[in-house]
Amino acid sequence: MEIGHRRKERLDRGVKVRTEGLYALMSWRELGYLTMPRLVLIIGMLILPLVMPSMYWQRVISIVCIYALLSLSFDFLAHFVGLVSLGGAFFIGSGGYIAAILNTILGLPPMVSIPISTLLGAVICTLFLFPCLPLRGVYFAIITLMFPLLLGRVIEALDILGGTDGILGVGSFTNSWVEQYFIILMVLFYLFGMRRLVNLDIGLVFRAVMDNDQAVRASGINLTYYKTVAVFIASSMGCLAGGYLAHIYMWAGLSMFALDFSILPIAATVIGGSGTLVGPVLGAFILVPISELLRAFGTLRIVFYALILLAFIVFRSEGIMVYGQRKYQQFEKWVKV
């Protein structure tokens, strides 16, 4: 075809109409354009356990999913509600200990103890964080970081809940496929659920709380109530991950309050793209395996880790997801003129 008879046009051009999120679909091709990224993500996650070479790597997938939930929780609170939370360890610890107690004392199987620890843990975490809700920015962050340290010391000093040994003999999943698909489906459920939530009207209220809390008060809306709801949702993700962790490690102990659970989600969010919800999940899928691969370097691991992070922050500070989205939207097709 001669030049002049056709030109390039961005694929999304006919798709996006006036406002974000309102689409006019004209063809299967455009439908494909829109659903493709979602399908790739869902199918990709579902086949992961099948393609993993060993039990070891299958376990890594489970750990990745735990961090993915924590990263999602961090991203939601930090970039949709405006609460910077370092509560990962707190959530994991609460969920983990509750699941362990439910399983060892009441004999509840994972499929019962995990949902209960999700809800009960979220209630407990929310109650602890409730007095801190008026705090902002770094002050809230410090408090959320303090609770796991505090609880850890209490357990150690009073020698309750197994003390430094932790709670041993927690029942495991009966089947390794169930074990993996359970957490993968949970990640997908929370991911799409949260994406949906932030675009609902209540999600707009969350974003408004972050944007400008005074105007929210002036609109007759109880700030504390919505912050509480947000913290409950976010901690439920962490507590679910914690309960799950207790069952796959068959143990709940002080290392569940480890700093990693609070810090790594931030790194994953930075790498993946903050405020995208999908980005942090992808970030976890990149960071955790890298950290596993780096185990070979022993203590030097943290150095490599820091270098990778640094490179990301310097060269791709917007995050993978934002970059990818931009590139994807720039896909062009030929159209006749």
Partner: peptide, 13 residues
């Protein structure tokens, strides 16, 4: 709410 379009600003009240 600077990060929201004008009409979404009113969804909050």
């Amino acid at each position: 709410y600077f990060s929201l379009p004008a009409y979404k600003n009113l969804v909050i009240p």
